[in-house]
Nucleic acid binder design. Structure first.
Lengths: 226, 226
DNA sequence: TCGATGTTTCGTCCGCGCCCGAAGCATTCG
DNA sequence: CGAATGCTTCGGGCGCGGACGAAACATCGA
């Protein structure tokens, strides 16, 4: 198969409304059952099953059977990045809406992007870390600097030992600037959730920053949101 | 229109084989006429015309009438990045082919990605510049460091004065690592072409590195290719 | 002004693929 | 073991959209 045909195939896979809805639902990194995804896409289970099989075959989704359920999740951060990138490009089109990205202000403020923080919070966090020299984005996959490692150690935030791609820039859908992805980004995100710095709104990607979280982000990372 | 519908619409636009072929043909940043693109996609001019109209309406292509021809080009580097990213994700799928990306070794070695250098050459260039401290990828759009500016000045390579996004990382399709995009990347690319460091193969994205180019890249940028 | 060339519009056809309902497996629980 | 739940496979219907040819429109050259 030629490169072009494969390119088209991949794009077409995302290009179906039902499949796009499922991918969108999975963009917060959680896993959902086939039935839940069918409901999210507004289609019947048989139809959803077919779509999901296609996405799994293409390597875009990973599946994890659990009892009589099958849990689907986005297969890799790269896939998540592509979907986020497509949304950014889409939002950029000025067909009708004046301002790009999601209209929900809370969603713009803070949300989960696959497995890390996005929105104003994510972008500000990335900026603060870089400005303070805690991360050092080099071409072949960024990494924490020594001071960044110390900072996370001091905060008791741990992440897998693999040095590669500890940080990864990810184009933010609404802000159209980069935010912090990669393993460090995921670690900070899960820590923020575990410690009650942010709270996930029931069944959405939206995050609410708690008062404790605002203080923690300001004190520990120097992040200050309007 | 909902976010999901727009996401699907954008992806579906790339997801048609004929349109994907046209976008692929335009990925080297040059502009082509409607007829040329029709031929590239293997369809008749009327059909191509319809596809091109869709892409222009969606803001993915820009059109420039010139006499009785209409020249089409990719509307923005972001669009090019998405297409390149989709190819990277596509190549990542291990459905049949063992190694990702293009099979043509010359295409892997050096090629044009929208308006900048890609392939082994592009990745190596990015790495050398970063290692030498000539570029400093910070979150909100990378930039040349002072030494990077001096380097380009010394080489007589000029680029538009806009500081923002002078450099931009772009995921390399075949290497799966970043290469140098943005205005500095474009400037270096055009200088490399103008000075005969690389030569474009007739009608393709493939670049051949000339002996003079190999020397120039090694001496000026510290780039050394196997 | 008139033909040649490039592009678009129109009308039509046709096939791919999405969708659903019904039935068939698989798994869990009473 | 049988009933309930979740998912998948199968078969058939249907609509969207891509394909082309013919013709209209635009631009250039003679």
């Amino acid at each position: 198969m030629t490169t072009i045909a494969r390119l088209a195939e991949t794009a077409a896979l995302i290009g179906d409304p039902a499949r796009a809805a499922m991918l969108y639902a999975l963009m917060d990194g959680r896993a959902f059952t086939a039935g839940e995804l069918a409901q999210a896409a507004g289609i019947t289970p048989p139809t959803a099953s077919g779509h999901l099989a296609q996405l799994v075959t293409a390597g875009m989704l990973a599946v994890e059977p659990q009892g009589r359920h099958r849990y689907f999740r986005i297969a890799s951060p790269e896939i998540g990045g592509i979907v986020e990138g497509l949304m950014a490009v889409t939002a950029n089109r000025v067909d009708r809406l004046p301002n790009p990205g999601p209209r929900d202000p809370a969603l713009r403020k803070a949300r989960i992007c696959y497995d890390h923080l996005a929105g104003e919070l994510g972008v500000a966090l990335f900026g603060s870390l870089a400005k303070a020299g805690h991360i050092n984005v080099s071409p072949e996959g960024a990494g924490l600097t020594a001071s960044g490692t110390r900072l996370l150690d001091r905060l008791g935030i741990e992440w897998p030992e693999s040095r590669r791609l500890a940080c990864r820039p990810c184009l933010d859908w609404s802000e159209r600037r980069h935010h912090l992805a990669g393993q460090a980004g995921a670690a900070i995100c899960s820590a923020a959730l575990a410690r009650g710095w942010v709270r996930r709104r029931q069944g959405t990607r939206t995050l609410d920053i708690t008062p404790a979280g605002a203080k923690a982000f300001a004190d520990s990372f120097g992040v200050r949101l309007g």
